[in-house]
Amino acid sequence: MRLENKVALISGGARGMGAVEAKLFAEEGAKVIIGDMLEDEGRKIEAEINEAGGECVFVSLDVSDEDAWKRAVNEAVSRYGKLDILVNNAGIYRAHNVEDTSADEWDQVMGINAKGVFLGTKSAIPAMRDAGGGSIVNISSVAGLVGSKSTSAYNASKGAVRLLTKSTAIQYASERIRANSVHPGTIETPMTEGFLADDAMRKDRMDRTPIGRLGKPEDVAYGALFLASDEASFMTGSELIIDGGRTAE
């Protein structure tokens, strides 16, 4: 198994990509802590993993709350003895151009997508240091690489994640804490189902995806698995783009 003896904390693990990552990581031997605001959904994934022979615990986590992050890390360490992997997966999507983005929307998106990643990283580092190293996987987006005609704060937040990842990588490499970002294209998840329900929007996204299909949560989960595992032990500060060719054009 590719994550044997590893302990992984996954924010936003109650549904969508995070839930698929939680199940895949558990199948590969990791003990999983799901941190999410959605308790019902999170408890369901927790039960599913435990019933399938894995080990999982749900913790309540608002990623913009530093104390909640500390409690999540403590839960990992007290229950499973350590923390090796953090997947900063939680995120929200808002589509407004610059003039239509309110200051409140900016704060909300940056608070969750960017500051949430910072707080998660900050909280996980001491435990990873104690464990002799670790792997932080930050879910950015193609919107962290190229401009977007439909988003402003989301674009900015994902760009922030891209570079925070590199800062973390450089600052903590000597402690063998790795940090890499994942940049998915359009993935069919609860976060994107709203805009993908619009036929014109779906067609636009399909037209811009050379591989001819939208992504599935599994596509991202396998990339996260690779980065989380020791297979990627010489990778840090890198960007894994999983977008069906969209930004190669």
């Binding site: 992504g215 990627a232 010489f234 990778m235 500060g237 999983i242 977008d243």
Partner: peptide, 29 residues
Amino acid sequence: AMGALYLASDESSFVTGAELVIDGGWTAQ
């Protein structure tokens, strides 16, 4: 080789035109 294995396998079936940097952080700074 581990990076090549990921890209060769169907695990990366939504990955194309991408760059996998395996450099110990060399180009991140």
